[in-house]
Design a protein around this nucleic acid. Structure first.
Lengths: 226, 226
DNA sequence: ACCTGAACACCGTTCAAGT
DNA sequence: ACCTGAACACCGTTCAAGT
């Protein structure tokens, strides 16, 4: 007698790597980095924690694979603009928004340099630098600088939303607290930080991020024209 | 009868916060981020794991305090140069070298934006931007960009040495492996990454880092002159 | 061949009991 | 008042036993 499908508690399809990754993304999105455990994951997948190791080597492997899925989608979604500069800006903004939507990607990316997710970004930006006329021997340093900046901002954004989530406040309330802390620093030791606390309170992360990208692009341009 | 000092297993001085932090730094330096546990720490300090909570709120608090000690020393060690640009370069290089010597600082800093260690760097660089004549309303975005870049590079360097340590290879051997992996990527999908793999093999992290700083500084200059 | 889930070797953190 | 260290509530990972 053939066993009827969909009438047992057990999965009728065998476990797939993709299925594991998608479930991991859902857990990360809803519970942050600490929301992903092999126990929670295997429960969602209606299996035991050991079963996952048939498809994934380790937790860090899983985190990289999950990040890669997000980055791949983000790169696919961003189409080329009219100029190389505009394309770089669009790609960078795409990553900013992706990390905003999935903060865990920010910290995962920083911990896996040279791995596939970072390489996808590197490739995309590098091709635009070629189009911009950056000489061959300067291409590595140049992508490297742009990528470091993007990952740096991403990492900090991830940390900010993580810290905000931890103390159960809104992200902007959290930045407000930081600004208040800064304005209470010793005036002799921290004059600059105090003076800039107000700008921290009113700033727009996304706009500031783009200004930084533009600063680097302008530097590239002026280095080339020299 | 007065108890003689230094003849018992037990600490004769009471536990101090500084002592805990210094011991934590030693553990982090020798064993990486996973080398710091409350059990190892309390063993070094000849006490129980619970005793530490009298002086430190949590592990992340300890990590921030340890980073702060390193950053404070680094900022104190770097003296002002003749020009603001040169000073910024010196401060940035100082942080690069500090993270090279204590890789865990790289990841800890990224996870604690707005906290004291990051603020020390922000303040130092900010003062130089003022001296450079960056207008008040642009000062926040500008430090923010420089800091993000520095933390971004730091985080990646931390990750690289961590990954190298994990597979027990030399750091340069590890980068060599990455370069090999890159040169084996699909030529149609990753032409840029493949072409740049060679530069990854021969590059100097420290030099590349400075080039990135200069790119941003040049961008600042050209934005101001516009 | 693949899944299952108890078991192992850890964690950070707490707290009653001691001094 | 401060330390002690067993106990709690978790982790990631392994592996003998099952199907």
């Amino acid at each position: 007698m053939v066993k009827k499908a969909r009438n047992t508690q057990r999965r009728e399809e065998s476990l797939s790597r993709d299925q594991i990754i998608e479930t991991a993304i859902a857990l990360l999105d809803s519970g942050g980095e600490s929301g992903l455990t092999f126990r929670a994951l295997s429960e969602q997948l209606a299996t035991g924690p050991g079963a996952i190791y048939g498809h994934i080597a380790s937790k860090s492997d899983l985190l990289i694979a999950a990040s890669d899925a997000i980055v791949a989608r983000t790169m696919d979604a961003s189409v080329d603009s009219t100029t190389p500069e505009a394309t770089i800006r669009a790609v960078a903004l795409g990553m900013f928004d992706a990390i905003d939507a999935h903060p865990w990607v920010g910290s995962a990316l920083t911990r896996a340099p040279g791995k596939l997710p970072a390489v996808r970004i590197l490739e995309r930006i590098g091709q635009q630098l070629r189009a911009l006329g950056v000489p061959d021997d300067k291409q590595w340093v140049t992508v490297s600088a742009l990528l470091s900046y993007i990952l740096g901002v991403g990492g900090q954004n991830a940390a900010n939303t993580h810290l905000a989530l931890e103390q159960e406040t809104d992200r902007s309330d959290f930045l407000d607290e930081v600004a208040t802390m800064w304005s209470e620093l010793d005036p002799d030791e921290y004059p600059f930080t105090r003076s800039v606390a107000g700008q921290l309170r009113t700033h727009d992360d996304r706009v500031d991020f783009l200004v930084g990208i533009d600063l680097i692009l302008r530097g590239i341009e002026s280095a080339r024209d020299r």
